[in-house]
């Protein structure tokens, strides 16, 4: 079981309120991702759940039981840190065994679980090495191994992949997703990489300045961002946001159109502009169109190869059904 409920949880550091009171429920077995810009309080929120920091207000319930004042050890959660936080003076085996040793588990059971975890994580041949003798990806797997042997009611990950190179990151991402499919244990995962968020999450929590902006499935957030902040934050490249006369035409303060929902043409269309920088990835092309009068640049995504060059005059046409409208408060209309 691993249902976690936050009721009015708040955090202040001295005078600074980093997290105003917030409510959130994480269901058993869910993969929840916290995203948000740097410094928005993702790590702090995770550490509150872990018990590494005290809440300044509110309650934390784990499986319905009040865990607000429980020590980290008592909460039955496991955490994987960005720096891996392996014990450098212990072998991989001892690292993985440590939580079980602390729990006073019998030795044969410990060994059985270590073997199983090592097999699942491809660590069998490294068990007697020290963390210092492992690569970044291997260290990360040891950290995960150390977390899974305890069979926690939930896993907490704080940007676990940000120290890895791009290729390894994709691999580990898949491994963690697979792990979740296999264990079906609750996972809370902090990242500021929205690709990770979109691909891994059952449910994304978008945070800004300690406030929850929106909670929903990745596609909910993509199709129906609740406000301008979420609209701009989710999706890559960013959604184009226009204010002024164009927006007023749609009866809104701000409108947003995703780059993939704009058609680009050399001949006809709704808005005229000039091609600035263009990026050709083969499968897709991105055009940064200038001089439209709507915004500094308008990003357009186009499938395949398009024969447009820097300086060419182009016309843009939005997909009318996919235009997002926001009112003066920035909320979705």
């Amino acid at each position: 079981m691993g249902q976690i409920t936050l009721q009015g949880v708040a955090k202040r550091f001295g005078e600074v309120e980093v997290i105003p009171p917030l409510d959130l429920t994480i269901e058993d077995g869910e993969f929840v991702v916290f995203v948000g810009p740097s410094g928005c309080g993702k790590s702090t929120l995770l550490r509150l759940i872990a018990g590494l920091e005290d809440v300044s207000g509110g309650r934390i319930l784990i499986d319905g039981k009040d865990a607000t004042d429980a020590s980290p050890a008592k909460r039955g959660l496991a955490m994987v840190f960005q720096s891996y936080a392996l014990y450098p003076h212990m072998s991989v085996r001892k690292n993985i065994a440590f939580p079980m040793k602390m729990a006073g588990m019998p030795k044969p059971e410990q060994d059985r679980r270590i073997e199983a975890a090592a097999k699942a994580l491809n660590l069998t041949s490294y068990l007697d090495r020290r963390p210092g003798q492992l690569s970044g990806g291997q260290r990360q797997r040891v950290a995960i191994g150390r977390a899974i042997v305890r069979e926690p009611s939930a896993f907490l990950f704080d940007e676990p992949l940000s120290n890895l190179d791009a290729a390894l990151r994709v691999g580990m991402r898949l491994e963690i997703s697979e792990l979740h499919n296999r264990l079906k244990t609750t996972m809370i995962y902090v990242t500021h990489d929205q690709v990770e968020a979109m691909t891994m999450a059952d449910k994304i929590v978008v945070l800004q300045a300690g406030r929850i902006e929106q909670v929903g499935s990745p596609l909910d957030l993509y199709h129906a961002p609740k406000n301008v902040f979420v609209a701009g934050f989710i999706g890559s490249p960013r959604m184009n946001l226009f204010t002024g006369a164009v927006a007023a035409d749609y009866g809104a303060q701000t409108i947003g159109v995703r780059p993939e929902h704009i058609r680009i043409s050399a001949t006809t269309g709704k808005w005229q502009g000039r091609v600035g920088v263009s990026e050709h990835l083969g499968s897709d092309s991105f055009f940064y169109v200038e001089g439209t009068g709507l915004a500094e640049t308008v990003t357009v995504r186009s499938g395949g190869e398009v024969g447009l060059r820097h300086g060419d005059t182009v016309w843009l046409t939005p997909d009318e059904g996919k235009i997002h409208k926001f009112d003066t408060n920035g909320d979705r209309i």
Partner: peptide, 26 residues
């Protein structure tokens, strides 16, 4: 790094265990 001591705390170590098994050896 403080994170290593926090990891120990998450792993169920008491203060005594934390100082004895993690901090002191390191």
């Amino acid at each position: 790094p403080g994170e290593i001591l926090e990891a120990a705390r998450m792993d169920g170590a008491s203060l005594r265990d934390e100082i004895l098994y993690v901090l002191t050896p390191m």
